[in-house]
Nucleic acid binder design. Structure first.
Length: 286
DNA sequence: CTCGCTGGAGACCTTAAACG
DNA sequence: CGTTTAAGGTCTCCAGCGAG
């Protein structure tokens, strides 16, 4: 497939970790996208809205947002937004996983044991903020051995998230691994024909489960409900077509499996935050 | 007239509870 | 671990409105 915009961040192979500040919303950042790297966003100032996998989060000063490898996301500003963005590759912790296999759990078990938006009332969040700021200071000064210091700070960050922000005990995740293979066959079917108007019954039949049971298991393993997942794929495709072609909105809607425009407009607006025509205008301004 | 968008009724999906 | 049931929420379709 590969029709949804996918960013390949230029992370150095030797040290795949970088920190930057985004003031307001950088146009490139503003588009719905995903990437294979892991991302930590820290709201230094102001307010904004984050759309992640079709869910809307309001973010305000002090909030920390984690984005895993497959989270479709898009941020925009509501007031004076300054975001510190820390991006890194999971390869950075390849060695650590030998003795600490759960070090990347905040990302690999996103939506199972962790939320994208970390609980702002958790007393441990202050320490996390400090670590992110320290990491950026190291990154800027690049004093001797800064890479080792940054990597240690990031490891501490992940460990503290693991320790203090988990919604469920560690054991619950391993039980879910069995269910993941069950979901895999269904995901494959969806991706082979994403435009099709899948019904819950059809998907449940592939998994040999009752619709309600299937829906629950899918949500547990994939992080979003079955039909919402299909919707995300189709919307991502529509954004791609709106931005890269001049075709009529009604044709794009039809190609992405929306049989009437009214429905397309409404669904699109709630998921993306702008109407289809606004998305297209946004492209032309750039 | 066409195109983009909104409102309402009904179909379908999601989720939790009760139970085998 | 699984099904059935039922309430509540979400999506789809159709009618209709305003702008160009």
């Amino acid at each position: 497939m590969g029709t949804i915009k996918r960013d390949w961040l230029d992370l150095s192979k030797s040290f795949p970790l970088q920190v930057s500040d985004n003031i307001g919303v950088v146009p490139d950042f503003n588009r719905l996208h995903w990437h294979d790297s892991l991302e930590i966003n820290y709201v230094k100032q102001g307010e904004g809205i984050y759309l992640i996998n079709g869910r809307t989060y309001t973010m305000r000063e002090g909030d920390i947002i984690l984005l895993g490898p497959n989270d479709l996301h898009r941020a925009f500003e509501t007031r004076d937004l300054v975001l510190q963005v820390t991006v890194f590759d999971s390869a950075l912790f390849a060695a650590d996983q030998r003795y600490e296999p759960d070090i990347l759990a905040p990302f690999t078990e996103m939506n199972i044991r962790f939320d994208n938006l970390l609980d702002r009332d958790n007393p441990a969040i202050g320490e996390l903020r400090g670590l992110l700021l320290d990491m950026q200071r190291e990154y800027r000064t690049r004093a001797d051995s800064y890479r080792a210091v940054m990597r240690a700070q990031l490891a501490r960050f992940l460990a503290y998230v693991n320790r203090n922000f988990s919604k469920a005990p560690v054991g619950s995740a391993s039980r879910l691994r069995g269910k993941q293979s069950l979901a895999r066959s269904v995901l494959q079917a969806i991706h082979e024909d994403p435009v099709r108007a899948w019904t819950l019954q059809e998907l449940a039949d592939i998994a040999h489960l009752s619709p309600s049971r299937f829906s629950a298991i899918f949500k547990q393993t994939v992080g979003t409900s079955p039909l919402n997942y299909c919707l995300q794929i189709r919307i991502g495709q529509a954004i791609q077509l709106l931005e890269s072609t001049e075709r009529k909105i009604i044709d794009i809607a039809a190609e992405c499996g929306f049989h009437n425009l009214s429905n397309f407009n409404r669904v699109f607006s709630t998921h993306v935050g702008r109407t289809p025509s606004q998305v297209r205008e946004g492209r032309q301004k750039q």
